[in-house]
Design a binder for these strands. Structure first.
Lengths: 248, 248
DNA sequence: TCAAAAGTGTTATTCATACACCCATGT
DNA sequence: ACATGGGTGTATGAATAACACTTTTGA
């Protein structure tokens, strides 16, 4: 975890041999089920040692000639077919002994995990059941004990998601091309919690910023007044880029 | 860099052998010379290939049994003696071909760099001249072309520093136990630029937050009215932890 | 006609910004 | 006495938050 301070390590024997690493990429893939107001994370059931029959984050070891990011996209593509997605690097967990395989083989290979954080649109994210199955969306509030240090990675990813949502336009990566302001509001409430903002204030603030344009198209969902479909205007958003904009 | 979106990589041959990695830790060590209002970064002159006679970020390869963070502390301790410091992980750069050594030896070893970000107090950070020298504080605005992708890492670290300063109390990690409000203001201006806030507003805002306590001790620096020494009260700050506090 | 969902408006309060001004010290 | 840096106060406008309220639909 970031932000340790004031520690001093005096390592007198710094002439030890270099460590050899295998590098894994683990992804915290989030999705928001707006219909049920639930934040979901993608878990896979492990079929090999270590941690057989534990749920864990989807991950893989990096292949020769493959970049970290591409490895992340590779597992993602193996597990889900998604139209819209957002991906960014999260954190690198690399202490010794975090992977039991380090003990098993005596060659001293270390396992390091570069974790990635992804957000996909729930509605068009189709899970790929690969034979024996064992892949599922789990409500974040109900995840069981996971393999390795994956609970820790998930917690870290969850924190990042909340932050991202507050001051960056990630939400639009994961919403369909056109969406209602309620859709947007739902997304925010399920991730940030019920009391982050009043709907009308949220609405007013976002519309004032001016990068949401009303398409004029109305859509009716069950009872109630039909809602306008809006579109995120990336060009109009450009000036806000890199500015400490807060969406709340 | 984080935040790529909408890319899909279809990798048909995912049965390639795993890559073997050496893992390097490179640190972007910042310091603020308040007397000259300059933001400094620690660079070391390289004496070995690759990139001989280039300046680069201080770094090392991770040894057996050593955690990433400890490796970061190890190089730090080799280069400077510092009382106060703040350290956190920055980003992991791991594309293939980022290190020319990958080409040189044909065993297909990859080099991955986990970068760390550190902030040390300039006044009590004593550089350790290790024999042939070649270690120096460089004003961030004047850094030359660096080895590897270190300019990119530096740029990323610089961005992180600015953000950190805005919404976290890092400044106090790097200021002495007792400091004047001008000291604090100087620190902010040198990092964030001249026009981030008016001194009196900055002052008013911070005092209102209530985690800076006046020790009553006055200190006179040259001409002008003597300033009060303040102390950062971590206990009083606690409630603000994890809240979207902005220091401006 | 009524509930549900969408959308608008009002108001009080806090906050940001840009200043003007007073205070204590060295020279 | 005056320049220098430290410290306080105030007026303006904008942003926030908590509401009440209207509009348009399905049932």
């Amino acid at each position: 975890m970031p932000g340790r301070t004031q520690r001093k390590v005096i390592d007198p024997i710094s002439s030890q041999p270099l460590a050899d690493f295998k590098v894994g990429v683990d992804s915290v893939i989030f999705s928001v089920d707006t219909s049920q107001n639930r934040l979901l994370v993608l878990l896979v059931m492990r079929h090999q040692e270590p941690f057989v029959n534990y749920w864990g984050l989807p991950g893989t070891l990096v292949r020769q000639g493959e970049s970290l990011e591409n490895a992340a996209y590779r597992i993602l593509a193996e597990k889900i077919r998604a139209k819209n997605l957002y991906l960014e690097q999260l954190y690198t967990f690399g202490g010794p002994h975090r992977d039991p395989r380090e003990e098993a083989n005596s060659f001293g290979i270390r396992y390091l995990s570069v974790s990635y954080f992804a957000l996909v649109r729930f509605e068009d994210a189709e899970l790929i059941a690969d034979g024996v199955s064992g892949i599922a969306w789990y409500p974040v509030k109900e995840v069981p004990q996971l393999a390795f240090d994956h609970n820790e990675i998930l917690a870290y990813g969850h924190r990042r998601l909340r932050n991202k949502l507050e001051y960056s336009p990630v939400a639009f990566e994961v919403l369909p091309e056109m969406f209602t302001l309620s859709d947007l509001y739902q997304l925010y409430t399920t991730v940030l919690g019920e009391n982050f903002s009043d709907y009308s204030n949220f609405r007013a603030k976002l519309l004032k910023l001016g990068f949401l344009c009303d398409t004029g198209i109305k859509v009716s969902r069950g009872a109630g007044r039909p809602a306008s479909l809006y579109r995120f205007d990336a060009t109009a958003f450009a000036p806000f880029k890199d500015k400490p904009l807060v969406f709340i």
